[in-house]
Structures are given as structure tokens and as C-alpha cells.
């Protein structure tokens, strides 16, 4: 963070130091610097949320909240580090759907953590909606029913891309096939931005993916957006139907949330939940998050726990049905 001060000084504007906020008498937390592990490389959407929240907590709780990016092993190393650290609130993690509800199932018995056994949820902070897009030159269907009919008439002819095995983008495609009986070939990429050129060029025809980078291409007519994968229609365009309107119960969103090691005292969890939820509801935060294509969420620890439980079950079923398992 000091680099910021250096840069700020160079730029000639002053930055206020951390302001001590009201500290409740019962829970003297935090008493020392807190590490916020972001199990992804710096700069992704998760990292940006992590840094925004850390900055807020530092201001209101009066101790440094330092973001540490540990990007190894698709996020496994980062989460593992938090699982193994002291359960006193001095180490938190900002994790995603894949980390919490997919990896422990996907990688099986040898996997180093079980989400709800080893971690205690604090609050969910975001929903990142996935949308169903097709290359308009390759696929003429413009509605979900037309698309399903086309896919069923041409089994395995269409390739769908994803940002990697076990991402919500991939599992969305699998869920779609399982629920509709359509059959496509899955082409995994290392991240969405590696996939996008092939989707634009028509090397692959279809994808479920996050909204922000896709919207300009949809606007330019290079991609056709058929539906959103959230349970309700999305704020950015109420005219776009949900997949669930045609495939009942279909939901494939990514989300992020904060967790702490399982044995962390409930008082600390409650305090963090209160602070983070307050921040997520600020108008400025809401504006930034929607700019990033995310819906800010502020849930109670119990709600977040329930979400993790439900989604783990849903993706477990998809993974087992689709036989998506490392050999």
C-alpha cells in the first residue's frame, strides 16, 4: 500500500491516513494487521473487490488490512493458506464459486480443504451474472427454444467455450446440456479473454460468460445474447429473458464472498459481516460494482452458508452426471 503513498506524494495530492473507527467494547478486534487473501492474481474482478473492501475496513477498524494475492493452483493455495492460519480474524479470504462450491467436489478426496468444515462464511459480496451468447453468423437461433431445437438436430456440431474446467462458465454449459438433452463439444480456455477471440471469429459458436467484456460486442452485433443465467432478469437489460424461463430452475452464476478459518470466534465474524455489509450497501460501492458487471450483495453469514451448501449440491450433481473428474 505504501506505493500508493509514494505515488500520491509524487502526484501532489494528500491521502488521509487510517481513521480509527468505533471499536466495540466486547470484541477488541482487530488488534493487529489483518491479511486479506485473494486467491487470484492481482487485477481481476475479485482482486478489485478485495482491495475496495480492505481499504474500507482499514479506515473503519483502525488496523491495516493488507491484500495478499496468492494465485497458485486455481486459487487452491490461497484458500489452503487461510484454512491453516490462526482462527483469530487476522486472516480472511475472498473466494469465488469455484473455490467454495466446485473445487472440493471436482478434485476429490485428496483435496486440501472442505469449505464448510474448514471455513466460516462471513458474507457474500457479489453476484456475477453469466449470459448465454452465440456467434450470430454461425448460429441463426435467436431464442433459447430455437437454440435447443438446433442443438438437438445437430448433436456435437456446436462447440462451446469456457474459461476453464470447473468454472461456472463451464458448468453452465454442462448444466444446460444435462437439462435440455442437447449435446455440444466443450472447449476449455485459460480465462475468458483467451476465449473471446475464438468466439468472435466463429471458431467456437457458443458460450456462457460474464457480462462486461461481452456487452460492447453484443452492441456491435458481433455476438447475439440469448438469455441470462440468473434466476431473475438482469438489471442491465430487462428485455433479455432468463434461461430459466425455458429451462426451469436453471441457474449458473458466479459469486464472491468473505470467509475466515472455521474456528474464528462468532463475535469477530459478526463484526466483520456488519462492516462489510454496510460497505456493500453504500451507493458509491453499488455504482462501482455494477460498472464491473456485478451485482453487490450483502448477506448474513447464515445466508451465505446456505448458498454455499445449495450450490455445492447443484454442481456436485452436474459434475457427477457429466463425469467431469480428473482421472
Amino acid at each position: 500500500m505504501k506505493l500508493k503513498f509514494l505515488a500520491a506524494a509524487l502526484l501532489g495530492f494528500s491521502m488521509a491516513g487510517p481513521i480509527a473507527g468505533p471499536v466495540s467494547a466486547q470484541t477488541p478486534y482487530p488488534t493487529k494487521p489483518v491479511t486479506v487473501v485473494v486467491p487470484f492474481t492481482a487485477g481481476g474482478t475479485a482482486d478489485i473487490i478485495g482491495r475496495m473492501v480492505a481499504e474500507h475496513l482499514q479506515k473503519t477498524l483502525g488496523q491495516p488490512f493488507v491484500v495478499e494475492n496468492i494465485g497458485g493452483g486455481g486459487g487452491v493455495s490461497g484458500v489452503e493458506k487461510v484454512v491453516k492460519s490462526a482462527p483469530d480474524g487476522s486472516t480472511l479470504v475472498l473466494a469465488s464459486t469455484s473455490n467454495l462450491a466446485v473445487h472440493p467436489t471436482l478434485y476429490g478426496a485428496k483435496f486440501p480443504y472442505q469449505t464448510l468444515r474448514d471455513l466460516k462464511p462471513i458474507t457474500q459480496v457479489s453476484v456475477v451474472p453469466n449470459v448465454l451468447v452465440v456467434n450470430p453468423d454461425k448460429i441463426k437461433a435467436r431464442t433459447v427454444p430455437d437454440l435447443i431445437a438446433y442443438l438437438k438436430a445437430n448433436p456435437d456440431k456446436v462447440s462451446f467455450g469456457s474459461s476453464g474446467i470447473g468454472t461456472t462458465q463451464h458448468l453452465a454449459g454442462e448444466l444446460f446440456q444435462q437439462r435440455t438433452g442437447a449435446s455440444m463439444v466443450h472447449i476449455p480456455y485459460k480465462g475468458s479473454s483467451a476465449m473471446l477471440p475464438d468466439l468472435l471469429a466463429g471458431n467456437i459458436e457458443l458460450a456462457f460468460d460474464n457480462v462486461p467484456l461481452l456487452l460492447p460486442h453484443v452492441a456491435a452485433g458481433k455476438l447475439a445474447m440469448l438469455a441470462v443465467a440468473t434466476p431473475e432478469r438482469a438489471d442491465f437489460d430487462k428485455n433479455i429473458p432468463t434461461v430459466a424461463e425455458f429451462v426451469p430452475g436453471f441457474e449458473a452464476t458466479a459469486w464472491h464472498g468473505f470467509l475466515a478459518p472455521a474456528a474464528t470466534p462468532d463475535a469477530v465474524i459478526a463484526k466483520l459481516a456488519t462492516e462489510i455489509r454496510a460497505f456493500m450497501q453504500q451507493p458509491e460501492t453499488v455504482k462501482r460494482m455494477s460498472g464491473l458487471g456485478m451485482t453487490p450483495v450483502s448477506s448474513m453469514p447464515e445466508e451465505f452458508t446456505a448458498l454455499i451448501r445449495t450450490m455445492t449440491a447443484q454442481w456436485k450433481e452436474v459434475i457427477e452426471k457429466g463425469n467431469i473428474k480428473p482421472q
Binding site: L3, K4, T41, A42, D47, E55, N69
Partner: peptide, 10 residues
């Protein structure tokens, strides 16, 4: 990368 990530909030 690390530098830019740290500067992003600015």
C-alpha cells in the same frame, strides 16, 4: 503487475 494492482485503487 504487482505495481499496477497496488495502484488500481488510486
Amino acid at each position: 503487475v504487482a505495481t499496477i494492482a497496488m495502484l488500481l485503487p488510486i
